[in-house]
C-alpha cells in the first residue's frame, strides 16, 4: 500500500490512465462519453462482484458502433443458472484484467450510466482490490438527466423501461451488460440533445 504513495511499483496501465487526466484540456475538442453498464451479483458494494461490463463510446451526436466494449468476468459467484440465462459463451477474464481493459477503453471519457453512483462504487471497489486509487473520470447519471428533462423531483427513480418508453426507444436485448449499455447509450444520446449538452 505504501508503495503506491511513494510512487514505486505503480502498474504501467494506471500510470497511462492517470496521465490522461493531467493533460491540458484541448479547447473545442469533442468530448467522448462512455456509456456503460455492469452486471453484478447484487447491490452490496462490499460483498457483491461484477460479472460483466458493457460499454459504448459516444462522440458528438453519434454512437460509433466499433467503439464498443464487452467483458465477462470470472468470479466465484458465477453459477450455471446465471450463465444459462445469459446464453453466454464469451471468453472470461479475471477481474483485474477486465478492469485494466475497461480503463484502457474508457480513457479520460466522461462515464455515463444509469444510477452511476452504484456502478462507480462497484468499479472503485474493484480498483481497491487491486490496491489502486479511485476512478478519475467525470460521471453523468442518466437518471439525473432524465429528471431534469422531465422536471421530476430529485428523488425520483426512473427505470430503464420507463425512459425507453418516454424516449421511444425499442427495449431490445435486456439481459446483458452490453445490451443495457446500448439502450443507455440511446437514452443518453437523446437526453444529451434534448438538454442541449453540446460538449
Amino acid at each position: 500500500m505504501l508503495d503506491w504513495i511513494t510512487g514505486g511499483n505503480i502498474p504501467q496501465f494506471w500510470k497511462n490512465y492517470s496521465a490522461l487526466f493531467d493533460a491540458e484540456e484541448k479547447a473545442g475538442a469533442e468530448k467522448r462519453y462512455v456509456v456503460f453498464d455492469l452486471e453484478t451479483s447484487g447491490t452490496d458494494v462490499k460483498e457483491d462482484v461484477i460479472h460483466s461490463i458493457g460499454a459504448l463510446g459516444i462522440t458528438g451526436n453519434a454512437i460509433a458502433i466499433n467503439d464498443f466494449f464487452e467483458t465477462q468476468i470470472k468470479t466465484d459467484l458465477n453459477n450455471e443458472g446465471y450463465n444459462a440465462k445469459l446464453h453466454l459463451s464469451a471468453e472470461k477474464v479475471v477481474e483485474a484484467e477486465a478492469i485494466i481493459r475497461f480503463l484502457k477503453f474508457a480513457g479520460d471519457a466522461i462515464l455515463v450510466s444509469h444510477n452511476s453512483n452504484l456502478d462507480i462504487e462497484m468499479l472503485n471497489q474493484a480498483l481497491k482490490r487491486l490496491e489502486l486509487g479511485r476512478l478519475k473520470n467525470s460521471f453523468m447519471d442518466i437518471n439525473v438527466l432524465y429528471q431534469k428533462w422531465k422536471e421530476l423531483p430529485e428523488d425520483y427513480h426512473a427505470t430503464t423501461d420507463e425512459m425507453c418508453d418516454a424516449l421511444k426507444i425499442s427495449k431490445g436485448d435486456r439481459h446483458t451488460a452490453s445490451g443495457n449499455a446500448y439502450r443507455n447509450a440511446l437514452i443518453f444520446l437523446k437526453l444529451k440533445k434534448k438538454l442541449g449538452i453540446n460538449l
Partner: peptide, 10 residues
Amino acid sequence: MRNLVAEQVA
C-alpha cells in the same frame, strides 16, 4: 470480441 450492437444493426 463479438459486438452485440453491430449484430443488432446488421
